[in-house]
Simulated assay, not measured.
Amino acid sequence: MELIQQWKKQPERSFRVIAFGSSNTEVSWSGRHNWVEWLNLNLKTHIGRQVSVINQGISGDTTQNLLERIERDVFSFHPSAVIVTIGGNDTFQGFSRQQYADNLKQICALIRANNALPILQTYYCPMYSLGVADFEETFESFMQINRQLASELDIPLIDQYRVFEPFYRKHPEDYAKLMHDWVHVNHIGNAIMGMHVSSAFGLPEFMLPEDIKQETLALAERMNGCLDR
């Protein structure tokens, strides 16, 4: 991503990236890094200490909740970029496709109006077979709306779902090793998300701790092997 290379050339300035979403983003008491923390470490290591990633995920949030708190939780920090990952709770709460799309488009417009780059990110793939009825179709359509809006607005898209979903379909038992429950990833899933986000930012691979390195890399390799080439 060309933007962060510009940040690297300006060590005298401060640059902030906001991770804006729901429980997919919010840090927990697990004692393990989530994808936001992996990105923060990788940016600081390879771009510089002038770059900080601020986690503004709140469990249970919808696109409407993001709109209600965007001034307090995003614009007050004067960010350079905002990664928006949202949609699961909109699905649970019965938001229409139009309502979801309109809210997400408004979020992106507000971010741009505040001189920051909006970056849309799709989710990993929930384990639909263990979840609630009628979730899958709407959720997948919401992820597609992210793709359509990214293209329409000419903004970056980090498409986690495109990578996670084929692995779930082809190897559900192995996929379960990435999941905390049917709709949330665990520390392994978060590390793999962090790899994908880092790659989207043009960053090198990060250093995994030895206790999860072998399993994480093996599952990431299997996941990549499931992609249609």
Rank of each mutant, 00 (worst) to 15 (best):
L149N: 03
D102W: 11
F15Q: 00
P166Y: 07
Q121N: 13
L120H: 02
L117A: 07
I107T: 07
L178I: 04
L178E: 00
R72P: 02
D73R: 03
M179D: 09
F92T: 04
N114K: 13
R169D: 08
G194D: 00
P172I: 01
M207V: 14
S76I: 05
P172K: 04
E173L: 13
L66G: 04
I188S: 02
D228L: 15
T62L: 01
N103T: 09
Q64Y: 12
G189T: 00
T91K: 05
I107W: 10
S30Q: 12
G60L: 12
H180G: 04
L67S: 07
R69Q: 11
H196N: 11
E140F: 12
P79D: 03
K9A: 14
A19L: 05
N186K: 02
S141F: 10
R222D: 08
F77H: 12
G194T: 10
K105Q: 14
E221V: 04
L43R: 00
Y175H: 02
R162P: 05
D159Q: 08
I83A: 04
F95T: 00
I47C: 04
N146W: 07
E165H: 15
Y161E: 01
W35T: 01
Y124H: 15
Q56N: 11
W182R: 03
V17G: 00
L104R: 03
K105G: 14
A101Q: 15
Q64P: 00
P172M: 04
S23T: 06
D102R: 13
D159G: 07
A81P: 03
N114M: 07
T85M: 14
L117P: 01
A81G: 03
L227Q: 13
V36I: 10
N34G: 08
R72V: 11
A109Q: 15
E221A: 14
P209L: 13
M143V: 13
A133P: 11
I54M: 10
S141D: 10
K177Q: 13
L153C: 11
L104V: 07
K9S: 13
H46S: 05
Y123C: 07
R229E: 15
M193N: 04
M127T: 09
E136K: 15
Q50S: 11
Q93S: 10
N103L: 10
A116T: 06
K213D: 14
T45Y: 14
D90I: 02
Q106S: 12
A101V: 06
S96R: 09
S141P: 09
E205W: 13
S80C: 11
L117V: 09
G202P: 04
L66Q: 02
E165G: 00
S30G: 13
V132Y: 15
Q98R: 11
L39N: 00
L149D: 04
R16N: 06
F142V: 03
A200P: 14
E173D: 14
D73M: 08
G21H: 02
L219F: 07
T91W: 05
S96Q: 11
L157R: 08
A220C: 12
C108F: 06
N55S: 09
D154L: 10
V51H: 05
V53W: 02
S151T: 15
R13C: 14
H180I: 06
S141Q: 14
I107Q: 07
I158W: 07
K105P: 04
R97L: 13
H78W: 12
Q121A: 15
A176V: 03
D61N: 14
L149P: 03
E136A: 13
M1P: 05
N190Y: 09
N24A: 15
R169C: 06
R72H: 14
A218G: 07
N89M: 02
D211G: 03
